[in-house]
Nucleic acid binder design. Structure first.
Lengths: 252, 252
DNA sequence: CGTTGTGTTGACAAGAGTCAATGGCAGTGG
DNA sequence: CCACTGCCATTGACTCTTGTCAACACAACG
């Protein structure tokens, strides 16, 4: 059996209840696999989308560049995420979807998704909920962008990615793969690359976290979370999953 | 007949098609009116919400404060907006809803909304779409917070509010009421109040816009939009409405 | 073996925050 | 009617975070 939908089931199972029929509906979704290389644009700003992109491996981000040439990355997505689920009801893209690292994605047509939604009110609610959690993550990033300084923003980013990657079983002990450039990090944090580099060195020096050869290692979770003022509740992970994590690491 | 739902119909009509039955369903929604004074919290962070808040008059915002005491305002809402529509599927609030200016709101129970959604697939899609547009506005703000300097951020904010207030018929020629403090403006822009004040004076001096006695007057739309790198497409206003506006002011 | 993208460093400039003080203005209570 | 109070807008001086420019090292890659 194909594993493509597996991570999606994991993610949806972590943010809501999935019954057997819903699982079957999801597993039987038709898709088209596609391999994308680093920097490749998957969906362009301004284009009209007729399918959604499920991330299977690697990393993908949503971003937009200003006329000044400055780029802001709004979100970073990993296996199980559907970064452009919103295109279902907002087909005209107001930003673009780009591979941050080599990635594999599965393209699922809007028609197929709509067909599933018509058959299951609970899945409709769950996917709606997923887009709302996406928006909650935007708020969390906005909060950091507007009110926190660079070290806190970076700490927060690493915390979020750590929790999310563990959610879908992508991390190894206290580390996870993040094969992206410091340029990408800087564009998420809203800083220059030079400043992002210095901020990273600062975190390294404090032995809170390390990021080298495409892998983030969390050295002191509690201090990192404190610096980043990280509270995972905005990820709206269901009780069981949160508890599990909290007990292991003292996330909250 | 009660006018409470009117602005909601205007807003939803501007972002999608509303047929007669959908209008009837919306108009017959039960609600409870409430008057809130400036600074009053309507829904608290951490609380579990069982109703949604439709703004009828005045202004309301969503915000969160960090442990540092810094507050970020995520969005500002006017008549016709349902700022916490997301609470329908994400009842645990990860931020709070506060009156920025004296306001009247209508509280509509989740049960009543769910009842309407069960009866209309088109309304389900439209309200989902509304929450997605909300998220698109977050992305636009993030872009400015992360990549633009204070004057551009302020210009962008005024542009957005101008377009949105006109959408629901709240503006008068080239101005609209905005009875909020510069402190609130600063917390939206992610700057200190001192810097927001100086930035405002800068815009005044350039005769792009004015903001005094609770009213914003747009003096030179085109230059203001250029400074704010404003492109209204993220508001996802339907073609007819956009065209009307564009023809009047050259929004794009 | 050059090319290219990336990480790193230093020096300097500029944007933005902090602190402190002042003045205006509306509302309050005597 | 007037002192008093609190909130808000405004200003100046100073500090600090962050951006810019430029240079260089290094690894991956064709």
């Amino acid at each position: 059996m194909d594993k493509t939908i597996d991570f999606l089931l994991r993610r949806l199972g972590a943010i809501g209840k999935l019954n057997a029929e819903d699982r079957d509906l999801l597993v039987s979704l038709p898709f088209r696999r596609r391999r994308v290389s680093k920097g490749e644009e998957i969906v362009a700003e301004g284009s009209t989308s007729s399918s959604c992109c499920l991330v299977v491996t690697g990393y993908v981000h949503r971003s937009k560049v200003l006329v000044t040439g400055n780029r802001q990355i709004f979100s970073l997505h990993m296996a199980g995420d559907i970064p452009d689920l919103h295109s279902l009801h907002l087909p005209k893209m107001d930003h673009s979807l780009v591979a941050t690292a080599p990635a594999e994605v599965a393209l699922i047509s809007h028609a197929a998704i709509q067909n599933v939604l018509d058959q299951s009110a609970t899945l409709t609610a769950l996917l709606w909920r997923d887009t709302l959690i996406d928006a909650a993550a935007f708020r969390a990033w906005m909060l950091m962008l507007g009110q926190a300084e660079a070290p806190a923003r970076m700490a927060h980013l690493f915390c979020e990615l750590y929790v999310r990657s563990r959610l879908v079983g992508l991390n190894r002990e206290n580390s996870f793969a993040l094969p992206i450039s410091q340029i990408a990090i800087a564009d998420m944090l809203g800083t220059s690359t030079v400043h992002a580099n210095r901020t990273l060195q600062d975190l390294r020096l404090q032995k809170l976290v390390d990021f080298e050869r495409g892998r983030v290692t969390v050295l002191r979770w509690r201090e990192l979370a404190e610096l980043g003022m990280f509270d995972s509740s905005y990820l709206h992970i269901m009780a069981g999953v949160v508890a599990d994590q909290a007990s292991r690491e003292g996330t909250r």
